[in-house]
């Protein structure tokens, strides 16, 4: 059976897949959660989706600078991962 399954490659795919494939959505969700409660004008820096509709959540308190920084960090990592994915496609390394 070991002739038919490349266990090494399979393991790498599984581990990396879980880290990236589940980690990115989780980070994205975390970023949004940290942003939640903010007015939309804090968002455009990293989250273009929030830009076109300002004032959606004006009643809720603004996030602390720490939360905002955390959110931006999360979303930057996500964008970075997408850029890396693009780079992998373009460089034909797959």
């Amino acid at each position: 059976m070991s002739d038919f399954i490349e266990w090494g490659a399979l393991g790498q795919v599984l581990v990396a897949g879980v880290l990236v494939g589940a980690g990115i959505p989780a980070l994205f969700a975390l970023g949004l959660r940290l942003l939640a409660g903010t007015t939309a004008d804090a968002a455009p820096a990293a989250d273009p989706g929030a830009a076109p509709e300002p004032g959606a959540a004006t009643a809720t308190p603004r996030p602390t600078p720490l939360r905002l920084a955390g959110a931006v960090l999360c979303l930057v990592v996500v964008v970075g991962a997408v850029a890396t994915g693009l780079f992998v496609v373009v460089s034909g390394g797959h």
Binding site: F28, L32, L35, A36, D47, G49, E53
Partner: peptide, 24 residues
């Protein structure tokens, strides 16, 4: 991934998650 997202976005207003996740 879905389980993490569901846990993390609990309590976040749905219109916000919808807008964000659409772009994602």
């Amino acid at each position: 991934g879905t389980w993490c997202v569901a846990k993390l976005t609990r309590g976040v207003p749905q219109d916000l998650t919808n807008r964000g996740f659409r772009w994602g």
